[in-house]
Design a binder for these strands. Structure first.
Length: 849
RNA sequence: GGGCGGUUAGCUCAGCUGGUUAGAGCACCUGCUUUACACGCAGGGGGUCAUCGGUUCGAAUCCGAUACCGCCCA
């Protein structure tokens, strides 16, 4: 412990590593695998990407989860914060591939086995970064039970789930249109796609009717896909084409003919009103094609090049083919128009390349059986989403869910437990017996394994002690964008495989934006590194700041809030210092607040009970911002500004020492879940503390210590002192000057000495000639020190005050003169208005006296 | 195109089951080596609560419209 006499400031950088080490050594981060999950408290961290580094979202989410975990641990529950990382298929594979390319190699050159080995090496070397960074934040997760979504045990859970769903008939293989990412050469999910505005050229192309009676003109931004057209569609209500439905056209550049079909999807006011249908290369065309049983002709391959089916254009890239097709059409005189066209185009969030929609053979999970129970779980309250407004987004998404494409053409990930031999397909946890079996090359979507996180981390499908003790978990805290991607899938998988919801509460936190309102991102250069912020302001400050600035909507990063947290840590440090420099090593453990105890002791102990009750409720309601700011208000606005100032005039006897240390210990314990480092350090130094604060009980409010009379008295005292200080300031009285005064107020008599000390009044030298009179609760304070007053300043102040009072009086009089108000407003409100008016009139009269 | 959210002090945000003199942090002004803290203390200035209309005795708060900003879905 630092020597308090010499240290005037809290130094986070010195304290944090030592305190973190004491916590780790205590073993309290590691929940005991015993007891029931209903009695225990557990949170599964949303596993960060193993390639990742801590960003503000992680820091906020870590602060939230740690506050919850520490709160419940202090409340005596056996707690477990399940920690680990996600193998992040595409992101990790790309990361390692980049290195190989730098080395002049490639994954193809290495071969699958050596490549995967290389990724594991990479993970060994760099995969621990984000876990270490969480430690800097003070996160009290279970570092001993760290899990990885590719662990051997985890892999077994994944295979089990795959096989069970396959046996259910929920997993199947099909030709389907997927979002093909040419960059990562894999299918990716809808949520990994982002739409961007792009200006393309809209080409109009003539398709001649086979009966020679004319032509149909279609509009498209992808002329090269016409080689895969299998129909032309028009809206059935479109008069322009009424006679053409059922007729045939010749598809230019090929020797094929297409039928003109009718489908409601076609918009009559877009383009020419006639739509070329390419089922294998456009999502909408795919739907129409399936409705009409059209052929799916694949003309663009997975390598982004035109296939054999593209005839003369085979081998060209899609872009080259577009140029060639347009040229050929122009030559044949079939190009009817071209104009710039701006529209939203899908791009891969992973590789940044433009998505090529194409039909390929993929594995899918049907959602028909899985989604309804997950909707039900939220509707009936087994899973509560906070804030509740997010529930609708969750259920809306699940209600419209489509089959989930789970195969990815990657090497890094869970390889599907599927084997082929000629026409046979085998699905099983272990490889099939016999020769000639070839294993499926594809791996599973990373989210497939992540969806099992809350139970696969605990040893499922075995009923391990960890599983029994901590599943289902209690809370899942996450950002909004993960609500579908992950939360919904966890609920579906949890219900299907464990029969229980994986958590009872979902807390959806703010997204922290850059101070200018843009997204925080590395590529934009708008990111702020939480570790830098911790280095500069301390982990407590960053935690407090993030919690204080967060809300139910997105917020801009506010360094001022972090600095507020830093100030709070320092304030607590110095408040403790003040008490500790005045008490000995041995103090009584209970506050002394019975009859006859000083009013300020009774008051602060009473207020503490109320603040503890409020903070407890706010944590339970996930109102972290209110809790953090409420704590700040208590420490600054009550403990330091008033209580510590009020006791400065007293001798630190045993009673005061016991009470002050009790208040200090309770405040440190109350603040610990939010700002753990400074509170832990101070706890050790306060007499009466036992063991580490992280393992100490959270304060329980004691009704018996709530003291309304003390509350009224100190409340009046504060109003009086504030009024008198304001008067002194307005009258330009020298700060040090003692002013002769007499207090005429029954409400304040008992506490006159305290008031006199705080305002530097000399109650003994009142001359009897009042030079001024100040309204205070229950009466007035008369002042008799004319010399000390700056007459000019005083007059200005009074003039200003008078006009303010007159304005308020007029307003109150107006209200009370309004018959409707008196008749219709609640009686106590009217009475309150009258009382206010009376008070204001008294004050105005005193001003004029 | 559909849905949701926002617009309150110079900045970042609370308040929004209708009734307070509309708050906080930071910034700003004045004063202060006051028996912990200048990462401090005391006092103070600053807001027609986006705009327009409605409901009501009473609207930052409820309803409708408009403008601008943002997010999600198609």
């Amino acid at each position: 412990m630092a020597d308090f006499a010499d240290t005037r400031r809290f130094e986070p950088a010195e304290v944090e590593p030592q305190v973190m080490q004491r916590w780790r050594d205590s073993g309290l981060f590691h929940g005991a695998a015993q007891g029931s999950s209903s009695a225990n408290y557990s949170i599964a961290i949303p596993p960060p990407n193993v390639t990742g580094a801590l960003h503000m979202g992680h820091a906020l989410n870590g602060s939230i989860q740690d506050t919850l975990i520490r709160f419940h641990r202090m409340r005596g529950q056996n707690t477990e914060w399940i920690l680990g990382t996600d193998h992040a298929g595409i992101a990790t594979q790309i990361q390692v591939e980049k290195r190989l390319i730098e080395e002049g190699s490639s994954r193809e050159e290495l071969g699958r086995e050596a490549f995967v080995e290389r990724v594991w090496q990479w993970r060994e070397e760099f995969g621990g970064t984000i876990i270490e960074q969480l430690g800097r934040l003070g996160a009290s997760c279970d570092y001993e039970r760290e899990r990885f979504t590719l662990d051997a045990g985890y892999e077994r859970a994944v295979r089990q789930v795959f096989c069970d769903l396959y046996e259910d008939g929920a997993i199947y293989r099909d030709q389907y249109l997927v979002n093909w990412d040419p960059g990562s050469r894999s299918a990716i999910s809808d949520v990994e796609v982002e739409e961007r505005e792009v200006t393309d050229t809209l080409f109009e192309i003539a398709y001649p009717l086979t009966d020679g009676s004319g032509e149909v003109v279609v509009a498209t931004v992808r002329p090269e896909t016409m080689l895969g057209d299998s129909a032309v569609a028009v809206n059935p209500s479109d008069e322009r084409f009424a006679g053409l439905i059922g007729k045939r056209v010749k598809l230019p550049l090929t020797d094929r003919e297409l039928e003109i079909i009718a489908d409601d999807y076609v918009k009559t006011d877009f383009g020419t009103g006639a739509l070329k249908i390419t089922p294998a290369h456009d999502p909408n065309d795919f739907e129409i094609g399936r409705r009409h049983g059209l052929e799916e002709i694949i003309v663009i391959g997975e390598d982004g090049a035109m296939t054999e089916l593209a005839g003369n254009f085979a081998g060209l890239t899609a872009a080259e083919a577009q140029v060639a097709v347009v040229a050929a059409l122009r030559e044949q005189g079939l190009l009817r128009g071209e104009e710039p066209y701006t529209h939203a185009v899908p791009f891969s969030h992973r590789s940044g390349e433009r998505i090529e929609p194409l039909v390929s053979l993929q594995w899918f999970i049907k959602m028909d059986e899985l989604a309804p129970p997950a909707i039900e779980a939220v509707n009936d309250g087994r899973v509560k989403i906070h804030p509740a407004s997010q529930s609708k987004r969750y259920t809306d998404w699940l209600e419209e869910i489509r089959p989930w494409c789970i195969s990815r053409q990657l090497w890094w990930g869970h390889r599907l437990p599927v084997w082929y031999r000629d026409e046979e397909t085998y699905v099983g946890i272990e490889a099939p017996e016999g020769d000639g079996w070839v294993r499926e090359e594809d791996v599973l979507d990373t989210w497939f394994s992540s969806a099992l996180w809350p139970f696969a981390t605990l040893g499922w499908p075995d009923k391990t002690p960890e599983y029994e003790a901590f599943y289902p978990t209690d809370v899942l805290s996450t950002a909004r964008d993960i609500l579908f991607l992950w939360v919904a899938r966890m609920v579906m998988m949890g219900l299907r495989f464990t029969g229980e919801v994986p958590f009872s509460d979902v807390y959806v936190h703010s997204v922290i934006q850059a101070p200018d309102g843009r997204r925080m991102s590395k590529s934009l250069g708008t990111g702020i590194d939480p570790i830098t912020e911790i280095d500069e302001h301390g982990a407590d400050a960053v935690r407090f700041g993030l919690l204080a600035m967060s809300s139910t909507q997105d917020v801009r990063y506010s360094r001022e809030r972090v600095e507020q947290g830093q100030a709070l840590a320092n304030k607590l440090f110095n408040a403790s210092r003040f008490v500790l420099l005045n008490v000995g090593d041995e103090v009584g453990l209970e506050p002394v607040v019975g009859v006859g105890a000083p009013v300020e002791d009774r008051w602060i102990v009473s207020r503490l009970q109320q603040v503890v009750a409020e903070t407890t409720e706010q944590i339970e309601q996930f109102e972290f911002s209110k809790a953090a700011l409420g704590l700040y208000d208590f420490v600054y606005g009550e403990l330091c500004d008033w209580y510590l100032e009020l006791i400065k005039g007293r001798e630190f006897d045993d009673q005061l020492a016991a009470t002050a240390c009790y208040v200090l210990r309770s405040t440190l314990a109350l603040a610990h879940p939010f700002i753990p480092f400074v509170t832990e350090q101070l706890w050790e130094a306060v007499p009466g503390s036992d063991g580490l604060l992280i393992g100490a009980p959270f304060p329980l409010p004691d009704e018996a210590l709530i003291d309304p009379e003390a509350g009224r008295r100190v409340g009046d005292l504060i109003v009086a002192v504030t009024a008198l200080r304001s008067w002194r300031s307005g009258a330009n009285v020298k700060p040090g000057a003692q002013i002769g005064a007499r207090i005429n107020s029954a409400a304040l008599n008992a506490d006159a000495a305290l008031i006199a000390r705080l305002v530097r009044l000399d109650l003994g030298v009142f001359t009897g000639d009042a030079t001024d009179s100040i309204v205070v609760p229950g009466g007035t304070v008369e002042i008799s020190a004319g010399d000390a007053i700056d007459v000019e300043a005083h007059r200005r102040e009074r003039t200003q005050r008078r006009s303010a009072l007159e304005g308020e009086i007029a307003r109150a009089e107006g209200k009370l003169a309004n018959e409707s108000f008196v008749a219709k407003a609640p009686a106590d409100l009217v009475a309150g208005e009258q009382a206010k008016l009376d008070r204001l009139r008294v004050e105005l009269a005193a001003l004029d006296a």
